[in-house]
């Protein structure tokens, strides 16, 4: 997917790392967890198995995974 915003960058140890999946996860975080709620409840159906793990926790998990990959690359 193309990134809907200018930049998603993880910085650390002098390295910058871009990942389109993070764009999607940030989009999910905003669109599903935030925004104006005008109805009492939001009714959504999660059918796609790859989107069941939605929200900040998965984002953090992905970031951790990204960092682990980065660290391994650096030590190799």
């Amino acid at each position: 997917m193309s990134s809907p915003f200018d930049q998603v960058i993880i910085t650390g140890d002098g390295e910058e790392w871009e990942e389109s999946d993070l764009s999607l996860l940030e989009t999910l975080d905003h669109v599903l967890n935030r925004g104006l709620v005008i109805a009492g409840e939001i009714t959504i159906s999660v059918a796609d198995i790859d989107l069941i793990f939605v929200g900040l926790n998965v984002l953090v998990s992905s970031v951790e995974t990204a960092h682990e990959v980065m660290r391994k690359r650096q030590t190799e």
């Binding site: 915003f5 998603v8 925004g35």
Partner: peptide, 15 residues
Amino acid sequence: HFLLSGPWPPYSFVN
């Protein structure tokens, strides 16, 4: 370590 993203519509400031 930073994760920066944006610019977004103001999803966090409207509720």
